[in-house]
């Protein structure tokens, strides 16, 4: 009987880790492309909360999780297009605009939520899961890792897609050049502004899906300020991963595990104030930064708007 309990417990722990890791993975992969292209996308937190809200609205009114994800992606991309216009095309300061967007959208989503849902706080039903044949029958690991919503596998598969894009495609090279030496890319006849804009839009879409997952699958409802720094964690993941998508996945799973462990500790009856629990992922980030931060390589032109002919 005791053994059975630990198995269930372990499964729940791992399941929680994956659920918590997916939004971070999506945000981290998205941010990675922006950073590669030389845009430090601080506005990703705003894109995520927008994705969470629009994604929730989409899923709630349509009854379909997929429409929720598409709506979330669209919401994130809408914010990203504003960011791209201001920071890439106009060359305004990326940090100032990023923070302003994040603040404004946290406010806006809370405001809309207040007028639309604050009386009823509607919940979505549990997301339908797609068990992977055979693998999902493995004891403990099967139900924890291979019984998730389809989007989870797609998110993990994105890691492979990103590796392919960065290593094997012309666009991947363009991105790298846009971040390291934009002038060289320009001389080669490729539009730096367009390359960076695409990267920022991609970030917005990924962050939007991440936000939608966080609200719809993770929580089942939208709460104001629900992302609570998940977008910023995505930035850390992208920084620590040094341009390698696989490390974003590893990092996301580590942070996801941290988050899940704290929830599990509460469920197990260990009495810790929630504030302490909220600190743990950030403590883990600081520890990772202290240990590995020195080697966090960032593109040379990160954060610098590109202006043709400027010195």
């Amino acid at each position: 009987m005791g053994g059975f309990f630990t198995d269930t417990f372990l499964t729940a722990l791992l399941f929680g880790a994956v659920t918590a890791a997916i939004p971070l993975l999506l945000a981290g992969l998205g941010e990675q492309m922006s950073e590669k292209a030389g845009v430090l996308n601080i506005g990703i937190e705003g894109m995520m909360i927008t994705g969470a809200y629009i994604g929730f609205v989409g899923a709630y009114y349509s009854g379909s999780f997929w429409i929720g994800f598409i709506a979330g992606a669209a919401g994130g991309m809408a914010v990203a297009s504003l960011m791209a216009l201001l920071c890439v095309r106009f060359g305004l300061n990326q940090i100032v605009i990023g923070i302003a967007l994040t603040l404004g959208l946290e406010g806006l989503t809370s405001l809309l939520h207040h007028f639309q849902f604050s009386r009823s706080y509607p919940r979505l039903p549990a997301a339908e899961v797609t068990p992977i044949p055979l693998l999902s029958d493995i004891p403990v690991l099967g139900p924890a890792l291979f019984r998730h919503h389809l989007i989870v596998y797609l998110a993990v598969a994105m890691v492979g897609v990103m590796i392919w894009v960065y290593k094997r495609t012309q666009f991947g090279l363009n991105l790298q050049a846009a971040g390291d030496k934009p002038a060289a890319l320009d001389v080669a006849g490729i539009d730096v502004i367009r390359t960076r804009t695409v990267a920022v839009l991609f970030t917005g879409g990924m962050a939007g899906i991440g936000g939608a997952y966080l609200a719809n699958v993770g929580a089942g409802l939208f709460i104001p300020f629900i992302t609570n720094g998940a977008g910023f964690l995505g930035i850390v993941l992208a920084m620590l991963a040094r341009g390698r998508p696989v490390w974003v996945l590893v990092g996301a799973l580590i942070f996801g595990g941290c988050l899940s462990m704290t929830t599990a500790a509460q469920v197990a009856g260990i009495r810790i104030p929630t504030d302490v629990i909220q600190m743990l992922p950030f403590l883990a980030v600081m520890a990772m930064l202290v240990l590995f931060g020195r080697r966090a390589g960032l593109p040379a032109a990160l954060g610098i708007p590109y202006e043709r002919g400027a010195r």
């Binding site: 605009i97 302003a100 967007l101 959208l105 946290e106 405001l111 207040h114 104001p224």
Partner: peptide
């Protein structure tokens, strides 16, 4: 929260 929205719009 509307104040946040207003401040952010003014800034942008």
């Amino acid at each position: 929260h509307f104040t946040l929205v207003l401040i952010s719009i003014v800034l942008i």
